[in-house]
Amino acid sequence: MILYIVRRVIMLFPILLLISIVSFIVIELPPGDWVSNYITNLRNSGIELQEEEAARLTAMYGFDQPSYVRYAKWMQGIVTKGDFGWSFQWGKPVNDILRERLPFTILISFSALILSWLIAIPVGIYSATHPYSITDYIATILAFVWVATPGFLLAFVAAWLVFHYTGFSPLGLNSTDFLDAPWNTAKLIDRIKHLILPIVIIGLSGTGATIRVMRANLLDELKKQYVTTARSKGVPELTILFKYPVRIAFNPLFSTIGWLLPAIISGEVIISVVLSIPTMGPTLLRATLAQDMYLVGSIVLILSSLTVLGTLISDIYLAWADPRIRFEGTGK
């Protein structure tokens, strides 16, 4: 088991390296370099930068050196000091900007993942035990429509419906009354009310596919002979269902985290933009519109790494739950 974890963690490094290189390419993509753009912008707005100040900035980001040196500098900053660079748009280190937003991204994505399972697992079990029933068809159709609807449209319509019928505006993290209020129970309840909608929408976006996976796996499992054997021995139907097939059908759910997580993170980005929740999403959008590339690159780096780490955790869980995976490739 430990050997498996160690191997899996070592395999992580090439992928992280690739992610960092791609993020750096993103930073370098726009024509011209950052410092000269920055200086031109300052000049245009009437601020004259001292020659030595400009030279200092150029040297600091290594724009007088080849790009691999700049990459090495950027990586060195991240690995040794956790320093992701400087945001020209905010005039702040990237770290300061992301520190307040990253927790919300993780909180919302994680809750959305859990919620999507809480919905998908019971529905999947029901669909598999009652295949081709009306409920099964409805679940299938809903899953189809859900997959076909762009996330921002869902968020839009949902926010509008909530506002229209309850008069409660689900935008932002808190209602305007509470913005400057000190923390108390009322503010906490207000905050939770604001978080429900994004979590539900993002969570449901992964539900359709998860229902299908759960249903297909369970249907396969239920056809197996041990189920027939158990049935012929007179084991109650519910006991049969939950004792073995459901537990086995869970495993593929974990192995699909690898592609569910990127979808959830993508969903989190766009839905936070629509509902103006201060997570990585709106920050990324503003940074991209302003071509603030260190911020853009850092966000891509962090979000991708998060996904890869999430996949790692699910893989380790899977190995712990299923010995066949643990021993795969060790030849024993």
Binding site: I15, V22, P30, L261, P262, G267, L284, T288, T311
Partner: peptide
Amino acid sequence: QRLIDFLLSIPALPFWMALAAAMP
């Protein structure tokens, strides 16, 4: 195969946004 694994593991939207940002 590793390249495909990598591409499937990164969230598409932030990546698209970042690339679109580089577009003049």
